[in-house]
Structures are given as structure tokens and as C-alpha cells.
């Protein structure tokens, strides 16, 4: 079991990061939402395996919560927004796609170097993977910083959140259930608020391109 569990955690953790990087590659906003759903599944898998391995009921509940919120509710909500303007694509990100991919590669390498002390603290198989969570956070940040469309930025924000969650699962087998619950609900709230905001934006300006928002008005 432990061999299989290790293999599954490895694969799922790598999938979380790979999805984050794929987010930098795809321009189609709807594809981004799909990727987010995929990331939710992978994250839930990490939590579930960790729960089974540690016989931790709280972590099991967390896994279910992650699955419902991050692979279910959030993508559905965002998907509805995305469907309103079909074919919405990230036209020209602030940094072009190949460059942001290369930067992402550098960030991954950086995360490995920076995350090495974490592994040294508690040298187990799963803490060795913790840099991947850190790398996911960095990739999410890159997405957040370089994209022009509000929806892509929301995805970036959620990728950051997933990265943080992945790091905690790998390092400490999850934070206490109540904290995770709070964090997840926060994310949900953010998505709901942003969704309302985007609706207003579209009603006022007819689009959700953030470059239109460079001036302050009363």
C-alpha cells in the first residue's frame, strides 16, 4: 500500500504543478477553468491518500471538502462566467507565452532550492515534494501578474491557494480541519464576490479586460 500511496501522491502532486504550468500555456479562458477543475481533483487525491495513510478522519473530511469546493462549486461558478463571453481568449499577456513558460521553469528551480530546508527539517518522502507546492504558488503568482483578463487572474489566485494547500498537505498532512474549512470558505466567498463584480463590470463596460481599469473615478 505504501508503495502505491507514495506513487499516487507523487503523481497527484506533480499533476497539481503541471496543471499550474499548463495554465500559463493555454490562452482560452474556458480551458483555464477546466484546468482548475483538474487541479482540484489532483489536490483532493493528495489529501485523500494522506488521510488514508495517516488514518486521519479530519484530513479525509478535508479531502471531500476540497473535492466539492475546488473541483466542483468553484469551477462551475467560474465556468458560468466564462460561458457568457464564448471564445474569450487571453490576447496578449503582459509577458508572452514562451517567455512566461521559461520564467516558470526558472521559478520551479528556485522553489526547489528554496524548499530544500523544509525537507531537511523532516526528511520524509512527502516533505521532499513540498517544493512542488511552493512552485505551484509561484506559478500561480506569475499567472496573476501577467494576465490581462480578470477571469484569468481569478484562476491565478485560486492556483496560489491550491499551491498553499498542497504545501500544507505534503508538509504536515494538512492543517486542522477548522482552519482548512475557513480557508476554503474564504476562497468560495472570494469567487462569489468576484463573480458579482465581473457581472457589474460587464454591465458597465461591456467587457472584463482589466486594461480598461487604469483610471480612478468617483
Amino acid at each position: 500500500m505504501s508503495g502505491l500511496g507514495d506513487g499516487l501522491i507523487d503523481l497527484a502532486a506533480v499533476a497539481v504543478l503541471a496543471v499550474a504550468v499548463a495554465g500559463l500555456w493555454r490562452r482560452d479562458v474556458r480551458a483555464l477553468v477546466g484546468l482548475l477543475r483538474l487541479q482540484g481533483w489532483a489536490l483532493a487525491l493528495v489529501a485523500a491518500v494522506a488521510a488514508v495513510r495517516g488514518r486521519d478522519v479530519g484530513l479525509g473530511v478535508t479531502a471531500v471538502l476540497v473535492l466539492v469546493v475546488k473541483a466542483g462549486v468553484v469551477p462551475v461558478l467560474l465556468g458560468r462566467v466564462a460561458r457568457r463571453d464564448p471564445g474569450a481568449r487571453e490576447g496578449a499577456p503582459l509577458i508572452n507565452v514562451p517567455a512566461s513558460l521559461v520564467i516558470a521553469a526558472a521559478l520551479v528551480a528556485l522553489a526547489v532550492v528554496a524548499g530544500a530546508p523544509l525537507h531537511a527539517l523532516d526528511p520524509t518522502a512527502s516533505t521532499a515534494l513540498a517544493p512542488l507546492g511552493l512552485a505551484t504558488v509561484l506559478a500561480g503568482y506569475l499567472l496573476l501578474v501577467t494576465r490581462r483578463r480578470a477571469l484569468s487572474q481569478v484562476v491565478g489566485l485560486l492556483v496560489i491557494d491550491n499551491g498553499i494547500a498542497l504545501t500544507t498537505f505534503l508538509l504536515t498532512s494538512g492543517v486542522p480541519l477548522i482552519v482548512e474549512l475557513g480557508g476554503t470558505l474564504d476562497v468560495l466567498l472570494v469567487v462569489v464576490v468576484i463573480r458579482a463584480l465581473l457581472g457589474t463590470m460587464r454591465a458597465r463596460f461591456g467587457g472584463i479586460d482589466l486594461d480598461g481599469l487604469s483610471e480612478l473615478r468617483d
Binding site: V14, V97, V102, P131, L132
Partner: peptide, 22 residues
């Protein structure tokens, strides 16, 4: 096409990093 190849390049780097870490 360079975007596709850059993605392949990053995948390869991820592969190295993951291989070394795990």
C-alpha cells in the same frame, strides 16, 4: 509553435526537478 515547444521544454525541466526531488 514556439509556445508548444516552450511548453515541452518546461515539461522537461519539471521532469528533471521532480526526478531529483522525488
Amino acid at each position: 509553435v514556439p509556445e508548444l515547444l516552450a511548453a515541452a521544454f518546461v515539461l522537461a525541466i519539471l521532469a528533471v526537478v521532480v526526478g531529483v526531488v522525488a
